[in-house]
Nucleic acid binder design. Structure first.
Lengths: 284, 284
DNA sequence: CGTGCTTTTGAAAATCATCAAGTATAGTGG
DNA sequence: CCACTATACTTGATGATTTTCAAAAGCACG
């Protein structure tokens, strides 16, 4: 369930720069919504940490067992809380910028974020949607390997690189957990490559909906499966290698075939015929 | 340089089944070439270990520093040699079958292998081409996550799961190295997703050739860059999400534009205008 | 009740896939 | 040494899926 997109904590300077107070910028109120599509590579990602007080306790965190934090013994959670800074990111805000220095790592505790890579001319591809428990901050060398942007309201814990390194040194199980999670992430990436390389538009959409259904929790037997879809059609397209219009058309088709039903508020779809969708996901 | 596609040594039964003599089948001579396209999921992968004697020493291995074996101190290489079984795989032979029990892990010491995932209806996607130093055997649970097939003559070292686990226990740096390599693999996978999701056929081909040029060693300054291409056009298509005919046409186009030249023997291309190819890889 | 954004639908265009055929290369056996 | 076969590669013609361009419809917000 918990996927990672983790991090190169050890890469780069072997000698950790300790007194690293950090250039992380904390902004009270970000420019509302408007983010240019073409990533402003120069912008330092503003981190918002309003509303929720930082003193939220790890002991109460419902994301704990789904995340890397699970590797910290319950008796030591105070250590973890001390190292983490809780923040809330408003929808649309980019909190990791590909190519920027990787100073921080994040664990999502609520909401959904999209992880994306951008081509020089502005085309972009969403490599995954991160949810509760996911660990973010994969870096190549000292730079983030991808950008991350809040889809809906996101709550997360921020760990500075030195503090995370320290935690891992103190709790070696964290390293094993990161490796495990990374392996899983790699398997998912390979499956996504299979989808992008082989599948038709309808197969992609069907696979995506089933994947979301799985991520949304164990599908209860019987009735229609309810699947939240906080991301836009454009996001879905960027994730599946399709244009927004194609996503729309395929959803319309599935709706007309009675396989799914859609709701605007909350943004979601209901899978009315799981078997049919599975058939479509595999054989078009 | 060394990529991994590594593997869930710890996943599954925590209790390692020690006296696991192993069902690994060793065949002196495999059926020549002919492998059905649709993977026979039932077949146990035959491992061929002819010609080269198993007593090849790790001390002499030119792949050592590019691989996970680099984590074993030079003074302890005898331990490593004792754990490894050297084998040679003839072109076309599948030595890892997706879905089969993951009993062994492999380090390539020579040649090129293709790692692929197959859809129930036979469509397949090559997730990567593995070369010297690469570590193979990524598993989900106890089953291999992908198949692997020799492209040209492949030499590799085979480690049984228990023996590798033991090595890692004895040389903890191996675990760190595996993590590092896996991170790198994940970054590459994300870049491939970007390619598959966004790029046009010509951009894909150009990117691929540049990638191969990089894998083939640091391009020397000046003259045309020589890039070995041991895989078939069909393989390239399966890797790039294109059909074989499209691969051909794009290569022809690049040739006619004077950007590359091709040779049949040895199978390779020469990049005559690196800058032009880079332009094509980014902006079509 | 406009304004702005996302979603949806339609029609035309384009890229890439499919179908088909022909060429080249290597290996085999007469 | 040369047919003969098998495989890989190449090219052409056609077609289909998906993209692009365009516009309208549905909602949210002030």
């Amino acid at each position: 369930m918990a996927s990672v997109a983790a991090w190169s904590i050890w890469t780069g300077k072997q000698q950790p720069r300790m007194n690293d107070g950090g250039p992380t910028i904390v902004v009270a109120r970000p420019p509302p919504g408007g983010l240019s599509v073409v990533a402003p590579m120069v912008a330092t990602p503003p981190i918002v940490s309003p509303a929720l007080p930082s003193k939220t306790k790890c002991t109460d965190c419902e994301a704990r067992h789904a995340s890397v934090c699970d590797a910290v013994p319950a008796t030591e959670l105070a250590r973890l809380s001390a190292a983490a800074v809780v923040a809330t990111i408003p929808p649309g805000q980019r909190f990791i910028v590909e190519g920027n220095r990787a100073e921080d790592f994040f664990t999502l505790t609520a909401g959904t974020a999209k992880l994306l890579k951008t081509l020089p001319d502005g085309r972009q591809h969403i490599t995954s949607f991160a949810g509760t428990g996911d660990f973010l901050g994969l870096a190549v060398g000292n730079s983030y390997a991808y950008s991350a942007e809040a889809v809906d309201a996101v709550r997360l814990c921020r760990f500075s690189r030195p503090k995370l390194r320290r935690l891992i040194a103190d709790f070696p199980r964290m390293e094993a957990r990161l490796l495990e999670i990374t392996r899983h992430e790699l398997v998912l990436a390979q499956e996504q490559m299979l989808l992008l390389g082989c599948k038709t538009a309808r197969e992609r959409l069907s696979s995506f909906l089933l994947q979301r259904a799985g991520a949304a929790g164990r599908g209860r037997a019987g009735g229609p499966v309810h699947v939240p879809l906080p991301m836009t059609r454009g996001d879905i397209g960027d994730y599946l290698g399709l244009r927004i219009e194609t996503v729309c058309r395929m959803l319309t088709q599935l709706r007309q075939d009675g396989v799914i039903a859609t709701t605007h508020v909350p943004p979601a779809i209901a899978i009315r015929d799981v078997a049919a969708l599975e058939r479509l996901a595999a054989r078009g």
